[in-house]
Amino acid sequence: MDITVKALDEQTRMDMLQRMLDIRYSEEQIQGLFLANLVRGTTHLCDGQEACSVGVAWALKPGDMMTCTYRGHGHALAMGISIKTLMAEMMGKASGCCGGKGGSMHMTDASVGLLGANAIVGAGLPIAVGAALTSQVKGSHHVTVALFGDGAVNIGAFHEALNMAAVWKLPVVFICENNLYGEYSPLHTTTAVENIADRACAYNIPGLIVDGQDVEVVHAHVSAAVERARAGDGPSLVELKTYRYRGHSRTDTGPYRPEGELEAWLQRDPIHILRDRMIEDGQLDAVEFEELQQATERKVAEALEWAKNEPFPLLEAAYQDVYAGGR
């Protein structure tokens, strides 16, 4: 695949920056909710990985679809789920995107092409292949992307999905957000290859190793893979090298990470990379960015307050939608 990373236009960059900020501030608020025990259970935050979510979502067209993971708030927001319905879902409210039945790990919305955030590692890959099969059969030219972490590459579903997608040249792109840790385990302790994309040769498909912190780089590479799939040339395996700033889940502070690792990655913050580039290109100044941050922080806080005041589902909802069409 011949890929040139071109500067995106100013408006697109601004939209991407805004969405990455939406994700960043949402994750901050969500962490606060859980730590304050306003929401019980667990949550898996993606701050640090915003360029992956946004770069991928911006590479898709209307009608394209995505499966993603339980670290999925960023994916959901990038695909277009509103902050309000995300916050409401987080708190189990009736107006959440899943009526309060999904929660943090299962942000889903058919209307934005999100087939589901999956809490079973690797399970979304065959589902994405199935969606791609539908597109191939119907000749709809839609592409499905399967987002997953580096922890998913050692489960059988990964292999089965990539193999079948390659055999049938299905319009699907497999995108690994390699954030270096599968839950608490460093990648090198669980996986024999350093680059996940090296696995692509086993399926005779392209493998791309991509800087996951630079949203324009992510966008360019994923777009190339998506358009290749759309053209009928089959799947690719795209590896986005990224980092989660926080631990695996709510209670994990990430004590297993070597000293200095987080600090080094913070130097390559995806929001700052785009901000600096836009400032350099005269599309933004420091004051405007500051205002953007403050406005976003306010917007997210307001969404959260709105969600807090939303009603819980009626109790009879517990038995609703177990079966489509009732029993």
Binding site: M65, T67, L115, A123, L125, P126, I127, A128, V129, G130, A131, A132, L133, T134, S135, V137, K138, T144, G156, A157, E160, A161, N163, M164, V167
Partner: peptide
């Protein structure tokens, strides 16, 4: 195309069924 031989991948083909069913097919 409608009577599809698959590899020996039970988890995979069941997942493909799920994904296809979610997107409008009846596998």
């Amino acid at each position: 195309e409608r009577i599809m031989d698959s590899p020996i991948s039970e988890a995979g083909i069941t997942g493909i069924g799920v994904g296809a069913a979610m997107t409008g097919m009846r596998p």
